[in-house]
Simulated assay, not measured.
Amino acid sequence: MLRRLYTATLATAVLCGLMTAAASPSASDTRLDVVAENLVTPRGLTWDAHAGRVLVTEAGRGGPAPCAPGVGGYPACFGASGAITSYTPGSGRTERIATGLPSVINEFSVLGLHDIDASHGRISVVFGLGGQMSTRDGLGTAARGLAQTGVIGRDGRLRPVGDLLAFEERHNPHQADVNANAYGIARVPGGTLVAEAGGNDILMVSDSGAVRMVALLPDQIVDGSPSEAVPTTIVRGPDGAFYISEYGGEPTRIGKARIWRLVPGKTPTVVTSGFTGVIDLAFDRQGRMLVLELAERGFDSPDRTGRLVRVEHDGRRTVLAREGLEHPGGVAVAPNGDIYLTNRTTSLGEANGQLLRLRPGRS
C-alpha cells in the first residue's frame, strides 16, 4: 500500500514553502563521513527498511566489447560490470548483493544501473543506455536489461520487466531524437514510475511490463533558446504527490533547473526553481525537501563540487553540504535522520566511488 498521506495542513505548508525563494545560509552543525569506498560509478541509492540497510547502485565500467554506435554516433561498449552494494549501518558491513549487471561505456560516461527502490516487497531497478534500439541490439543479448526496469531476485539475478527503449522507439514523445536513458525510479502499487532523462518524460511501468507515459516535461526557453528538462528522479513527497528533479539540457544553465510536482492524473507544475543540474531529491523526517546538485557551478565547469540544499518549510534554503561532495549522484534518508549520498559518480569506471553519511544537526 502507498504510505499514508500527511495532513492537508502539512501538505499546504510543504507546497507553499517550496514556492518561496530565499537566501542560502549554511548549516554549521553537520558531519560528513565516508562509510564505503571503492564503488564503481555509484549512482542512485535507497533505504531498505526490510533489511535495515542502504542499497547503492553501481553503474560499472562497461567493457571492451561488443561495441555499437550510441547517441551522437559515439561508440558504446558493453560489459557485465554493474552491481548493487549494501551497507548496514549497525555493523558497518558492506557487500555486493548483485553483480554482473549490464553496463555500457562511451568516451564521455558510463551508463547502466541508475536507480533502485526497495519498497513494496521487492528490489526494483532501472537501467539507462543513452542510445537507440540499434545500439542495444549491437551490444548483444547480454545487454538486454539496458533501458529497462527490472527486479533483482534473492539470488542477485536481474529479471527485466518494462522495456523503456521499445516505448521510446514507438512513441518518441520528445521529438529531438530517440534516446532512452532512464535515471530515476519510484515503486507504487502495481508498478513503478520512471524519470526518463533521455525522453524528457515520466513513464509508468506496470508489473506485467506495460509502459505508458504519465507526463511529458516541456522545454523552457533560456536566453532565447529551448533547453530540455532532462528529469533525473521522481520521489513521493510527504503530501502524497510526486516530485521530479530537473537536470536541464546542455550546456548547463546555472540557476535554471526546476523542481516539478506531479499529482497522478493532472499536469505537473513547477514548484521551485533556481537550482543547477539537480541529480536527485529526497525528503527528511520533518518533510523538508533535500535537493542534490551534481555540480554547483555546472557540469561543464572544472570544479566538480556538488551541493546538498535543504528547502525549509518557509522556503528558505540551507546548504547542508558542499565541501567533500565531488559530482555526487544520489541521496536517501534513513529512519534515524541520517542522510546518505553517493559521491564521485561520473568517473569512467574507476573504483573510486564513495558512500557518504551526513548527520545533520538538530534543526
Rank of each mutant, 00 (worst) to 15 (best):
G190W: 14
T267W: 01
D115A: 07
G199D: 13
I97Y: 01
V14S: 00
L111M: 15
L281V: 03
D115C: 01
S273T: 15
V291N: 07
D338K: 07
W260T: 02
V222F: 04
G249V: 03
S86C: 08
G130K: 05
A182T: 06
Y183R: 14
G199Y: 02
R154Q: 14
G337C: 03
L164M: 06
G255Q: 12
G255R: 13
L193D: 00
H114E: 13
A11K: 02
G199A: 13
G265V: 06
I254C: 12
T30V: 15
T232P: 03
A118S: 08
G162L: 06
Y183D: 13
T233L: 05
V230R: 14
S81C: 06
V71C: 10
T318E: 15
V263S: 11
I185V: 11
G248S: 13
G63M: 03
R359Q: 13
V214M: 09
R3H: 12
R359Y: 05
A210C: 07
R253Y: 10
A65T: 13
Q132C: 10
R43E: 14
R96G: 06
H120Y: 11
D177E: 13
L356S: 06
R61D: 05
G112R: 11
T30D: 14
T346M: 12
S134W: 11
N179M: 05
F78V: 04
Y183C: 11
L18W: 06
P226A: 06
D303M: 09
V104A: 13
L262F: 09
G128Q: 10
L193A: 00
R96M: 08
A59F: 10
V309T: 15
R187A: 04
A59V: 08
V333E: 01
V309K: 12
D314A: 03
M133H: 15
L356N: 02
E312T: 08
R93Q: 14
P264M: 04
R316F: 09
P66H: 09
N38S: 12
D163E: 07
N38A: 14
I244Q: 00
L10F: 11
L55F: 05
P218Y: 02
I84W: 02
T252I: 13
R362Q: 15
E168F: 03
S347L: 08
C77D: 10
V14L: 10
G353D: 05
L113F: 07
L262P: 00
T7I: 01
G240L: 04
M204F: 15
Q354T: 09
V333K: 00
P360D: 09
Y183E: 14
T94V: 12
D303C: 09
V331E: 00
S24Y: 15
T192W: 12
G72F: 01
V263A: 11
L308Y: 07
T7E: 07
G138T: 04
V311T: 08
Y243I: 03
